[in-house]
Structures are given as C-alpha cells and as structure tokens.
Amino acid sequence: MLEIRFHGRGGQGTVLAAKILADAVLLAGKAECMAIPEFGVERRGAPVTAYARISSGKILLRSRIYEPDAVVLMDPTVAAGADIVKGLKPGGALVLNTEAPLETLEARYPGFKLYAVPARRIAIDNKLGPVSAPMVNTAMVGAVCAIFSLADPASVEKAIRDNVPSRHDANALAARQAAAAVLWRQPCPS
C-alpha cells in the first residue's frame, strides 16, 4: 500500500487533486484508491491537507495517515508554517512544486527522495488560474501519477477531463508537461 499526504491551500484544488488521483487509479484498473480530504473547515487560503491510499488489495484503514510513504507539497509557502515532512518515512518521497535547484532542496530536506515539479510555471504557462494564485493541481497530479506509476497517461487525462470544470485541454496538457519535467534525486547519505 502506498500512503500519500498532500499539503496545499484552500482554493488551490488540493482536494480535487486527490479525487482526480482516485479516478485515474480506478480508470487504470490495476489498484484501488481512497482519497481522504482533511476533515476541516474550508477556507480560501488556509492550509489544507488531504490523504490518499493506493493498494492492489482492499483498503480497510479509514484513519488519517501519520507515517506517509510520500508527501506532496502543492504550495511551497505552506512549508513555512508547517512541518511538512512530519512522520514521512525515512527515505520516503517528497514531491515539491518548486523550481529551486535540487541541491538547495537536499540541504533543506536531507534523507528523503526528492522530486521537483515546476508546477507553478506550467500552470502559469497554460493560463490555469490567475498569475497570483495559479491552479497547480492538475500538473501535480500528472507528476505524482508518473512518479509512482499509479496510472497511465490516458487514464490521467480522462480523470482530469471528467473532473475539472473548464480549460480541459490546458489542464490535460499541464499534467503531461509536469510528468515530463520532474527532476529527482536519491536521498543523500546522512
């Protein structure tokens, strides 16, 4: 079973990202996925957490995820106010929406497998959301599905088209571009 925790902000589509992920996994037909939004009061701009469990068998656990295999950071500014790697398994995966060089990230998050996704730039290039608050969710889902081989590109694209309210082509393109733009590196020995 793969357990993922997402960090984002209200209004950025973090919960929808988890839902798209669950749809893509179902469409791909190889595993089950449970997407769990954090049980909070919805406020635009406030930190939002969501979880996903993906398993080839039946998913029985319905609790929150305390020790995820992977953490996905949708909004880099959330990291300033929250310990985003809390509970992340040693050597676990950290998927960041960032254009910062891997060396900088490595110094900040030693001991984790790092994935950098320029989702913000991709969202802006595709005119997804306002420049001040680009909608990065479809780019991040595309990257996450590719990184963990959760769903094939066709399933990801269909899941995006089924869920996003508008700009279907641009969102599908953002997911493909993000999947291709992932930079990564193994954890450095500590």
Binding site: A22, L26, E32, C33, M34, A35, I36, P37, F39, R62
Partner: peptide, 11 residues
C-alpha cells in the same frame, strides 16, 4: 460517519 465516509472518495 461525517468526513470519514461522507467526504472520502472511493470506488
């Protein structure tokens, strides 16, 4: 269950 089922997505 509120949220645990009501807001959780699954097939």
């Amino acid at each position: 269950d509120g949220f645990t089922l009501s807001h959780t997505y699954e097939p």
